[in-house]
Design a protein around this nucleic acid. Structure first.
Length: 829
DNA sequence: ATCTCCCGCCATATG
DNA sequence: CATATGGCGGGAGAT
């Protein structure tokens, strides 16, 4: 193909348009890139502004530009207008012509200026692309970029060819809320952490790393496709968009926004965003060109979002250098939930209608009257949900053991990680269900969580195929889905709080983990300290903000490596991801070591466990390191069983009995583990949930994920409160036992672990730089990387997930954790 | 040199 | 088929 070259400047400047306008002279043949006298566009107000500004002083101008744009663009524009008139002639020569004038951001501004932020019903406006392109003097292509992003935020909806409807910002709150929710479901937080860790781990093991990365991140996920997130009432557009076509920009834009919404500092670097987005889509390798393309697209999106004032550009300075990033400046999104209402009609195919939606949205609905299908044809989330739900059910009923594919519910998207992790079936307690407020919710969740249960290639043989499980739990909080089934006994339950819910905790710091104490004790937990750990300092003021990245500290815990080779090996085989193995191992080890049922929570989530079903395991007993036994047990009960949803308010204050907070240990109770396998199966199969005790996989995942968040090394005394005191992690002990379990169990475990681990994986890795075994590079890394980590002797080698740990186990004894706390400086521009 | 990111070819989707 | 959309990546400004 002929390459296109970017037109030299001249082209840009001189085109017809300009010439036409140019009063004087700039002949058409403007020399390429005439630096000094670029023709400006007289016609655009903005341009004039710029010119003026520039004339004044470069600095000012830049500021002005940004500010003004962001501010009341209109006014500014008008003012400029006037000015421009005067200046027109002379300036044009000096104005800075170029590129900036044509920037997408500026264009977007102009575009936005045409419509009211909050159009009244009466004002509804339709957007005709032809008109817009003409008025703004831009190529159509550019408008598409803008519109696509706006569409992703539901600020516009497409009606038909060339026509869009302007909704303005009415839907923004809902959209953001929905996006946040999806982002949480997708575990973006973990992914971000993972990436960051990798970054610093980076250097070495390039090879190994790569593989790991691939495996890990994308790994098995294939199906993930995050569908375009729609608002129930608002959604999508008519016709065209629905198809699969809505591939990138729209979705990419949503994902990008999600990253901000879930990140604690709400600052997302382009690099990280690009990696995550790439990862999700396909497994492409870390292709460089692809990365570049992604970055380009992100800039496009960012420009539009910046025009909307939802984000602003900043620079994050880390050890490695300064990287471009963006900071969320849009409205805070409450975690709240209300969206669920939408789902109401789950079963039926009827499209969700905006009933739930406020009047504003009505507009959109009205727009799509019942015309047929256009409106909701494919996209409506409801439909998807319904379908997915149905499918799930069928699957469950019909094929107990067979792994199911995922049908993704609309909401959910797909997680980066392969379905396995994400979609574990949740087990619901019957009771819960009853409790659940709305059936809808329940369903939704189910849909989300359940379907896929065990897709994993290897793993899933159902160790215990037949067990029926409860189906979906209903979780109230948007955030966590989890639900724990509780064992027959019903005694134990877990509660998750979403951090966000607790108002206090906006950022929750993951610093603590809770361990179930032997039943009796109660501990109150609150998440609040996150900040301390993170040490985020944000100063808005100006340019530099130092932030400790919350995310980074993944907290991993590391420690021990364990062993059980067999199982581990097996795991390896099937899964490519080595990392996973490691995780698994660790988990095991943890489990083993702990011997029991421990659960951790990220701060913010509370999971009280009370008792184990059987007592056999003692699980309840806390952290005992004793652990091994548990492994051997053939059956475990998960300590965690039922989940009790609490309302946010409740949570805040709540004391949880029997919980113990521990520092990073990650522990899974053996029980839970055992249960896990079941979970997958169960979900599928059983429609009846009753029997088996299963921990919900989702719950586990959840926990695990969060674990990452927790800063390692913090130990919380039995005290209820969480102050986090950094302590070396004690939990390290890991014993290994490897092969004890029988095959099935082993499998199960692995699977489970797998699932749960994934989220963690990154963390772990990060946490555990390869130290011990491989000596080679360590020295350096640690320093650089680890500022605060504790090291664990037992960590697996870098990247590798391997089993290497046999030794590790012992070494680990006092594991050290690395806590990545890095500081970032953010500078705004 | 790096960061931004505009431009427009061309594959697809839509009508 | 003609258009409308929009993925994509070269390579030019901005720094």
């Amino acid at each position: 193909r002929n390459v296109l070259k970017t037109p030299l400047k001249q082209a840009a400047t001189s085109p017809l348009v300009l010439t036409g306008r140019q009063p004087d002279c700039q002949p058409l043949t403007t020399p390429p890139k005439p630096k000094e006298t670029p023709p400006a566009d007289p016609w655009t107000p903005t341009s004039n502004l710029k010119m003026l500004i520039s004339a004044a002083s470069p600095e000012i101008r830049s500021r002005e530009q940004s500010k003004q744009l962001s501010n009341s663009s209109t006014e500014v524009l008008q003012a400029k207008h006037c000015l421009q008139e005067h200046l027109l002639e002379d300036e044009y020569e000096k104005s800075q012509p170029s590129r900036k004038e044509k920037s997408l951001g500026l264009l977007c501004h102009k575009f936005l200026a045409r419509y009211p932020d909050y159009p009244s019903a009466a004002q509804k406006s339709y957007i005709c692309l032809d008109e817009v392109t003409e008025e703004l003097h831009v190529e159509r292509r550019r408008i598409y970029d803008i519109v696509n992003v706006l569409e992703s935020l539901h600020m516009v909806s497409r009606l038909a060819r060339n026509r869009y409807i302007w909704h303005g910002r009415h839907n923004l709150p809902q959209t953001l809320q929905a996006l946040k929710k999806v982002g949480e479901e997708n575990k973006y937080i973990q992914q971000i952490q993972m990436i960051k860790k990798r970054e610093y781990e980076h250097e070495f093991d390039p090879d190994g790393e790569r593989k790991e990365e691939m495996a890990s991140s994308l790994g098995s996920s294939e199906q993930s496709e995050m569908p375009f997130v729609e608002l129930p009432g608002v959604e999508f557009r008519a016709a065209s968009v629905n198809g699969r076509k809505y591939k990138s920009l729209r979705v990419m834009s949503q994902k990008f926004v999600m990253l901000f919404l879930v990140s604690t500092p709400q600052i997302v670097s382009l690099e990280v965003a690009a990696k995550i987005l790439i990862g999700e889509d396909q497994l492409e390798d870390l292709d460089k060109s692809k990365f570049k393309t992604k970055i380009r697209r992100l800039y496009d999106i960012a420009n539009v979002l910046s025009s909307l004032k939802l984000i602003k550009k900043v620079h994050v300075t880390e050890e490695r250098g300064r990287k471009p990033a963006f900071k969320w400046t849009g409205p805070e999104v409450l975690p709240n939930i209300q969206d669920t209402k939408l789902e109401a009609t789950s079963t039926t195919c009827s499209p969700p209608i905006s009933e739930s939606i406020p009047s504003k949205e009505h507009c959109s609905k009205n727009l799509f009257p019942s015309k047929g299908k256009q409106n909701f044809t494919r996209h409506s989330s409801l439909i998807k949900l319904v379908k997915s739900i149905e499918n799930d059910r069928r699957k469950i009923q019909s094929a107990p053991a067979s792994p199911v594919k995922i049908s993704t519910s609309t909401y959910q998207s797909l997680p980066v990680f392969p379905s396995t992790i994400t979609q574990l079936p949740a087990i619901a307690k019957p009771q819960l269900e009853g409790q659940s407020k709305t059936a809808e919710e329940t369903q939704m969740k189910c849909a989300l969580s359940s379907p896929e249960a065990a897709p994993r290639p290897e793993a899933n043989q159902p160790a215990v195929p037949s067990q029926p499980l409860g189906v979906c739990p209903a979780s109230h909080s948007s955030a966590s889905p989890v639900i724990l089934p509780h064992p027959h006994s019903g005694v134990s339950y877990a509660i998750y709080l979403h951090p966000s819910q607790a108002h206090t905790v906006t950022t929750y710091s993951p610093g603590f983990m809770l361990q179930p104490l032997p039943c009796g004790n109660v501990t109150g937990i609150k998440s609040s300290n996150s900040k301390v750990l993170n040490g985020i300092t944000t100063e808005e003021g100006d340019n530099q903000i130092t932030v400790a990245e919350p995310t980074k500290p993944l907290a991993a815990e590391e420690r021990p490596a364990m062993k059980s080779e067999t199982s581990s090996q097996r795991c390896l085989k099937r899964s490519q991801a080595l990392q996973e193995n490691n995780l698994i191992k660790r988990h095991r080890s943890d489990e083993e070591s702990l011997g029991t049922s421990l659960t951790f929570f990220p701060s913010g989530y509370l999971i009280p466990l009370t008792h184990c079903t059987h007592g056999n395991k003692t699980e309840c007993s806390n952290k005992e390191k004793a652990g091994l036994c548990s492994l051997q047990h053939p059956t475990y009960n998960s300590p965690i069983t039922g989940v009790i949803p609490m309302t946010a308010p409740e949570l805040k204050t709540v004391n949880i009995p029997a919980l113990h907070i521990t520092p990073l240990n990650i522990m899974l109770s053996p029980n839970s583990i055992a249960a896990a396998p079941v979970l997958s199966n169960s979900c599928l199969n059983s429609s009846n949930a009753s029997s088996a005790p299963n921990p919900s996989s989702s719950a586990l995942n959840f926990m695990l994920q969060h674990i990452g968040l927790i800063p390692a090394g913090v130990q919380v005394p039995a005290n209820p409160v969480l102050q986090h005191v950094p302590v070396s992690s004690q939990a390290e002990n890991i014993s290994q036992n490897s092969g004890n379990t029988n095959v099935q169990e082993g499998k199960v475990r692995t699977n489970i672990l797998h699932l749960s681990c994934r989220g963690l994986r990154g963390d772990y890795r990060a946490a555990i730089p390869s130290q011990q075994p491989s000596a080679p590079k360590e020295p350096q890394e640690p320093q650089a990387v680890t500022e605060n980590f504790f090291r664990t002797p037992g960590g697996p080698n870098s990247g590798s997930l391997l089993p290497a740990n046999s030794d590790g186990a012992e070494k680990t004894s006092q594991g050290t954790l690395y806590i990545p706390q890095r500081k970032l400086e953010v500078s705004e521009d």
